[in-house]
Design a protein around this nucleic acid. Structure first.
Lengths: 334, 334
DNA sequence: GCCGGTCGTCGAAGCGCTTCGACACTCTCA
DNA sequence: TGAGAGTGTCGAAGCGCTTCGACGACCGGC
């Protein structure tokens, strides 16, 4: 192994070459003969050499670290967040980058700090609000960034997300195909709409528009996340709309409560009430009965965000807006 | 603001002092006159100076970054994880450190890499298994580390966790006080026990021991996380043990399923069945009815882990084992 | 047989910071 | 009044890496 922290100079000596040669072997920025390369690589593994990140960052002006700015706020469904985060980390590693975790409670301060100190090369922000304080800062930053989600004014930014409007519409379409004529959307908690979080609003718009297109009756309601509130909402909904036979649920935390409430109100799924969820696959599969759902492709979104940010780091131009097409998986609930 | 990336040399020139003086103002490692200090600080904010992280790390051999190694595996309840993670980030910032996110799928490789490259000064690991591959590596690493959770052989390591044995016992005690004579523990998914994750096993042990101490009858069962499986488990349990009047649930993902199953089986909470959960407060409060619970003090554990790792970075010795006392909050379910 | 052009390697100059030793002062106390 | 003990500041030497320009060695073409 190592006697203590091995440097490139020791590798160079061990291999009988210049320091710069070792560097070029590692970066591949100049051609190196196969023979020399082998000797260097052998020395590297013999000594257990790992380049010092600080020195490398200082000399190359690249830290090989990207920041992931998480929200961690009320109304966000955390497991979904984590899947994004995990996807971002995995994707970043594939580009030989690490991920620095920034939480929103440090606010714009933290973003400015890690950018100005060159701790990170680029940023990926999650859970962007329609009117997000962080957005103006991003515009003035030299470091490239990618948003997961869309602010109200996305000009000049790079944004990725599931096409939630299409997702809402897709659910309507599916229920229409199944012959339902009156349906309802149970959406996010009202605080999420109030905050103007884009995905909730866009799903609702897609839902409402599709209602029209297919000539269905229906309504879109916010949906809180305690059992009692969900129960009330569902009960009132059934009372108000006796013809209702289909439900779209876009709220991971409320899914199991909705199902429990229906059960308690004597409605069988799918016989009396068809249910479509917009949620991650595992939530849909784990429910009783397993739910027909439009999955939130967290892995894909995270991967795409990283790909885009890497493209920008290379100086290439990328599309302002990337919308991923929703996919509907039919299960037992419709 | 800035013309582009401000260096310490520019600050020194602007303030009319030597570079080293600026450095000492920032670090406080030598006494500086009040007058000079003011001039320097003024220049810093006038120029918008942020020390370059790479240069600083190179010169000082400290990156001011700690690694947070997350599991992201089956059977872990993700929201709880996130609360730990968030607490770690917040606590680390209080010590002027940032947090690098490492996921377990990189395995020991990733840990070795970030440690050897001096990308991080120290590590905090979550969700430690009884027999954890990462543990031997930690022992040979020069960088200090703290584990959240306990491996089978914790000698020479620093571990923090809620005292789950005490938590299990506390639940039994509470139900005993309420006059229940036969109770059951619904624990983690069986895969979690099979893997030998410490917290699940320790809760069960504490539960079983306390059963004895209080002279109660009872049983401890694993508990899967889909509604149908939970329903079966609960139904069989009620069939097998007609005298059962109290339930301890130590599985965040199953909590709402358990309640729904009881409802469906015609049991009222708390009249026919008392329920105590071991879970974060918000899960307990959100349930219907709100659950008496032993909370998992994620924030406190995260904070403590960071405090310990910082102590170790300062070269101070810290206790091998830190167990946080469980607190029981009485709500509507008992 | 000479010229221009790769190819492969080297040496050295930084990157921006911390830290060590030196040094010029100013106090204090004998 | 001068030795000794602080103070407050400076200059310079790295920290370990990347990258630029230079330079032999070798190639093919005329």
């Amino acid at each position: 192994m190592s006697g203590r922290t091995v440097t490139i100079a020791q590798v160079a000596k061990h291999a009988g070459v210049a320091v710069s040669t070792v560097s070029y072997v590692l970066s591949g920025k100049r051609t190196i003969s196969a023979d020399t390369r082998r000797r260097v690589l052998d020395s590297i593994s013999a000594l257990g050499y790992h380049p010092n990140a600080g020195a490398r960052a200082l000399a190359s002006k690249r830290s090989n670290v990207i920041a992931l700015v998480l929200p961690l706020r009320a109304g966000m469904h955390v497991p979904v967040l984590m899947r994004f985060a995990s996807a971002v980390v995995t994707a970043a590693r594939r580009f030989d980058h690490d991920v620095l975790l920034l939480t929103a409670d440090e606010g714009t301060q933290g973003i400015r700090r890690v950018a100005a100190s060159a701790l990170v090369d680029a940023l990926v922000l999650m859970d962007v609000e329609l009117d997000d304080r962080r957005v103006p800062l991003l515009r003035e930053l030299a470091e490239p960034s990618v948003l997961i989600g869309f602010p109200a004014e996305p000009a000049g930014l790079t944004c990725v997300d599931l096409d939630f409007a299409a997702a809402g519409a897709r659910c309507v379409e599916h229920l229409a195909e199944r012959g339902h004529e009156e349906i309802a959307l149970l959406g996010a908690a009202s605080v999420v709409y109030d905050r103007g979080t884009g995905f909730a609003t866009r799903t609702r718009e897609g839902f409402v528009e599709a209602l029209d297109d297919h000539g269905l009756k229906g309504v879109a309601l916010p949906c809180e996340e305690t059992f009692d509130e969900v129960y009330e909402t569902v009960r009132d909904l059934l009372l108000d709309r006796p013809g209702l036979s289909g439900l779209v649920v876009h709220n991971e935390a409320a899914v199991s409560h909705v199902l429990a409430a229906l059960r308690q109100l004597g409605r069988r799924v799918p016989d009396d009430m068809a249910v479509v969820a917009i949620c991650p696959d595992d939530v849909a599969e784990r429910a009783g009965p397993p739910l027909t759902s439009v999955l939130i492709p967290a892995e894909e979104v995270g991967r795409e965000a990283v790909r885009l940010v890497m493209e920008k780091l290379e100086g290439r131009t990328v599309p302002d807006s990337t919308l991923l097409t929703p996919l509907l998986a039919v299960r037992a609930s419709t």
